[in-house]
């Protein structure tokens, strides 16, 4: 999404920039009298408006043209601004059923994402995490954001994610994760929650 908006912006900024630059250069060349030698334009001392402006703008086709140009320019500007609004990258529910299943089996990727977040949060050094799943149930793609404590062992956390969290997700989906994107952020906050240790006790006989 962001990439396509970036390309759109660069393209249109480039096109408009070039047009504006060319227009400005032509105006300067004409004002300096340099264009007259090349393109046989009026001399620098000549009037800009050679016709009666009142008469020109009184014509109905000129008014219609101005109205059309105004609408086109305004709509293009509005559409360009609307294109900047980030849109959510929607993912359809994962489907686990087949023809022979005897019913549909659906799971929203957000449900799996919450489980993945919960799993990541158990890794030492992880303060918080956010996960998003894309793709399909047979070809899942994962995008993770993990916020780590500034004293965390980053490589150990990554190893934990890559060797435990992602394979666990793959086991739940019964399909390996085909693509993973991990964004690490660092925070001064401490890890919340700690670890639960089951009490085993001692039985005296």
């Amino acid at each position: 999404m962001k990439r396509s908006v970036g390309t759109l912006n660069r393209t249109w900024l480039g096109i408009l920039g070039f047009l504006v630059l060319m227009t400005g250069s032509i105006v300067i060349l004409q004002a300096g009298g340099m264009l007259q030698g090349i393109m046989n334009t009026p001399p620098a001392g000549a009037r800009v408006a050679t016709a009666d402006l009142h008469a020109v703008f009184a014509q109905s086709w000129v008014q219609a043209a101005l109205l059309t140009i105004g609408v086109i320019v305004g709509v293009l500007g509005l559409l360009w601004m609307i294109a900047q609004i980030p849109r959510p990258n929607k993912v359809a529910a994962y489907r686990f059923h087949t023809e022979e299943s005897g019913g549909r089996t659906l799971c929203d990727p957000a449900v799996l994402a919450r489980a993945v977040e919960e799993h990541i949060n158990t890794i030492p050094g992880v303060v918080s995490s956010a996960a998003k799943l894309y793709g399909t149930a047979r070809s899942p793609e994962v995008s993770l954001k993990a916020t780590l404590n500034d004293r965390a062992d980053i490589q150990a956390v990554l190893l934990g994610i890559q060797s435990t969290v992602l394979p666990t997700l793959g086991a739940a989906l019964e399909a390996p994760v085909t693509s993973s994107r991990i964004q690490i952020d660092i925070s001064g906050k401490d890890q919340f929650g700690g670890t639960l240790h089951p009490s085993t006790g001692t039985v005296l006989q």
Binding site: L106, R114, E118, T200, G201, V203, L204, Q205
Partner: peptide, 24 residues
């Protein structure tokens, strides 16, 4: 029963197995 549609709406992390009690 012709069809059973299932929607998985939440997943709960499996708890760690409880350790064995020590016998003295």
């Amino acid at each position: 029963v012709r069809q059973v549609d299932i929607r998985v709406s939440w997943l709960t992390m499996a708890k760690e197995p409880v350790g064995r009690r020590r016998l003295l």
